[in-house]
Design a protein around this nucleic acid. Sequence first.
DNA 1: ACAGTGTTTGTTATCGATAACATAAACGGG
DNA 2: CCCGTTTATGTTATCGATAACAAACACTGT
Lengths: 338, 338
Amino acid sequence: MTTPRKPPTMADVARVAGVSPMTVSRAFKQDTSVSEATRGAILKVAEDLGYVFDSTASNLRSQRTNFVAVTIPSINNANFADTVGGLSDGLKERGLQILLGYTNYDIVEEERLIEQLLRRRPEAIVVTGGRHTERARRLLENAGIPVIETWDLPEAPLGHVVGFSNADAVRGMVDHFVARGVTRIAFIGGDADRDTRGTDRRSGFIAAMRAHGLDASRLIAAGAPPISMREGADAMGRLLDSLPDTQAVICVSDLSAFGALTECQRRGVDVPGRISIAGFGDYEIGAVSVPTLTTINPFPRDIGARAAGLIVDLFSGAQTDPARIEIEPELLVRGSSV
Amino acid sequence: MTTPRKPPTMADVARVAGVSPMTVSRAFKQDTSVSEATRGAILKVAEDLGYVFDSTASNLRSQRTNFVAVTIPSINNANFADTVGGLSDGLKERGLQILLGYTNYDIVEEERLIEQLLRRRPEAIVVTGGRHTERARRLLENAGIPVIETWDLPEAPLGHVVGFSNADAVRGMVDHFVARGVTRIAFIGGDADRDTRGTDRRSGFIAAMRAHGLDASRLIAAGAPPISMREGADAMGRLLDSLPDTQAVICVSDLSAFGALTECQRRGVDVPGRISIAGFGDYEIGAVSVPTLTTINPFPRDIGARAAGLIVDLFSGAQTDPARIEIEPELLVRGSSV
DNA sequence: ACAGTGTTTGTTATCGATAACATAAACGGG
DNA sequence: CCCGTTTATGTTATCGATAACAAACACTGT
């Protein structure tokens, strides 16, 4: 049986290659002055010895971790996954790695998560949303690294912002319906304030309806956010039972909108003939379902890509002032609405 | 303007609190011998100074990172997200944090990712699938940490396994159809071997059909894995055009199965009256769509939870031999099949 | 031939927490 | 009241890479 030897260090590689540890260190970096011959020889020795570079030591000495911390409400959400994908791809070239955590749509959990992430000494942190606990705000402000809030346009940003107004986006949807003469409009969303983006969308709905002088009381609470397809279907059932003259329903997400659509199908309610349905997020399902779903595309991948670009610019010195990058969501009118 | 001071260290906290740095270190750990009075005082000073524990130094000295590395094919996939969720929750209590990366269904990319992750010195690594490059295998074997392969039952495992046979699962589905007298069955999947689980499912389909003496040539390639709803719909279109007498189609995932279903709806093809459709993965959409989708539930969250439990047992010494935990997928017969 | 410039390599001290060891204070039973 | 035991704290050296500084070497133009 083989003794579980201690893994080789740079010093071991240096000894075998006949150079100083410093030269080995340089050989593992880019754009450092080591002759190609030496570098090649060193990397070969390293591979033969099974040496794997130890970031933990490098991180401490150089005070650089190459980590970018990212918090998202849920890992199981195609929109946030897209944002992380955009971030990840944009940061990969600069050798930056994402340290991901999820908050379960809970700002207390977010505070815990932020502290845990900051302990790893990330070089920047990207958070979803603009609402945080007092302590979380303090932690972020004192961290001494760029802070980017996304998916929102906070009134008092902590640093940089890459987002859009959830309320305005829904307002545009309401305006669209009203312009077509649709006035009895309902909103299906979560029943708690935990999902701040969902809450903002509902507020936008209410404000827009009132601005048109319309009844903004057709609000269906569908359960704890994030609400699922199933919950969207249940909510639609309750809506059809209680307010059967509703002409259109705006759902907090495409997932709940699809659930609502299926409930109509089960009941033989024609969409969009008898009722129009709209979602939010431009999930793939909305482009494929029968009928396709009217929705809003907030360009989640772009949010991540722009945040990544911002971080790169900040590190290269090309950007210094707090940035406020506003994404313009796009209204997609499709088959589920008149 | 405030000078960007250097962030405080443990030594700073110790000085202000009037104790040694070692005592501060102990105060930040659990189950260490510090009087409650001292600990309270130290934590208060730390909070006042805005001190945040520095893991990078701790990691180096203690040779423990509390990282568990995890590789998944795609971040944007509800099944893998569930596995990560199960892992994350199971590890959280032990203070272990997930270091996540995705491979894009590419084993060359996986090799790069594995090396990058190992540089961070994780204490265990969980990979999706059992097929790896030679170098990736060597890296994993030499890492000196527990290796867990998931979502598969490799013939030559690297270490521990938490998975199931994709081929056998699809075989069960074929058997189900054949038992009902359905014999002209097609398979819709990706057109490359990159997605090894998809390939295994197709192999299982072919083997099962042959075992029944049936024609196994109704194979539709729908594009590069992972195939989307849209690609599932396109593939269904081609299937209906080229082999209109097909009685049932098994899709590599619920997403493509749903796409296939919508194509039937657009064409007025009755499901399951004229053709049955089955998926894989038990995504939420299959439980909500009209009709609901026959599928296979491989319990993705359990895979993650069992892997987490295994890691905890390994660290506590309760488990020493290589484990092989087999998950039993469940066939869910629903509205989309006869 | 030689100062001046650029390239390649080496030496030393250090990043910030903690393992290992040592010691002082508190406790408890006969 | 004393010694063995537990509890609470301190001291010193160290994890493994690299920043900062230094120096040897090669080349270039006059």
